[in-house]
């Protein structure tokens, strides 16, 4: 079954994809939940602008997002330049940049899922907790957060799956460097550009489908289990 054996380069692409997507989700989780809470509960000037900016990556061509990231966060970018000079940390042409690009592309999905679940929380429960002696932060951690946990989980898995499939912004921002930024979709694309890459491309294609499918099923199962627990 030679055809089903992954080459070391293909393994590297798979591992890298999981690693980058993992960090993209970890990095965007806390800001995503806070922003979702802000959008769901607070009225403030410029709210629709914030909402628009968050959702922009969903409707922009990913290449545009990638190019803007390059201008902003590249080593000579408006933010990336000073950041590199001050801390020596850079997103340019490394896996961290790929994680950043994935995180930004997946951010709207995370925020949407969490926001919807916050909007569905009965605020009467939070009021009840206040009258029982819990201050607003206490209420958030003991009432709101546990109640929106299924929504957060859905958001995490959607964002993870979106990160895994990220292509345009990544290749534009951090290029296609083997072992550093060549994730599964980039490796697949590369294989389609070489004469005898069909078998490899097919293998990566199948893996992509399996991983994405597993993510969706896991999210569905976990969400159901949570729901059942909530309902007793």
């Amino acid at each position: 079954m030679e055809i089903f054996t992954l080459t070391s380069a293909e393994w590297a692409a798979l591992r890298l994809s999981l690693w980058i997507s993992g960090w993209a989700v970890i990095g965007s989780l806390v800001p995503g939940v806070l922003l979702a809470a802000l959008l769901a509960r607070k009225q403030f000037p410029g709210k629709s602008l914030v909402d628009g900016v968050v959702h922009l990556p969903l409707v922009l061509p990913p290449v545009v997002t990638g190019y803007m990231l390059l201008l902003l966060m590249g080593r000579r970018g408006m933010v990336g330049g000073p950041l590199y000079e001050l801390t020596g940390f850079s997103f340019a042409f490394n896996w961290k940049g790929a994680a950043l690009a994935s995180a930004i592309m997946a951010f709207p999905l995370l925020v949407r899922a969490v926001r919807l679940s916050i909007e569905s929380v009965d605020q009467g429960l939070e009021q009840a907790a206040r009258t029982l002696g819990a201050n607003p932060a206490d209420v958030f951690f003991t009432i709101t957060l546990p109640l929106i946990f299924p929504g957060i989980l859905t958001g995490i898995i959607l964002a993870f799956a979106r990160s895994l499939s990220e292509f345009g912004a990544t290749i534009t921002f951090v290029s296609n460097i083997p072992g550093e930024t060549r994730t599964l979709p980039l490796a697949l694309y590369t294989l389609t550009q070489v004469p005898d890459g069909e078998a490899g491309a097919m293998r990566l294609c199948i893996i992509s489908v399996i991983v994405a499918f597993m993510a969706l099923v896991t999210s569905e199962v976990l969400a159901r289990r949570m729901e059942r627990r909530m309902k007793g």
Binding site: Q127, R130, T131, L132, G133, N135, R229
Partner: peptide, 20 residues
């Protein structure tokens, strides 16, 4: 004084037990 410091416990019409 905020509700959590008033110590007036409130029993609501619909109970409002925490489902989780």
């Amino acid at each position: 004084i905020p509700p959590e410091k008033r110590r007036f416990a409130y029993v609501f019409q619909e109970g409002r037990l925490f489902p989780h």
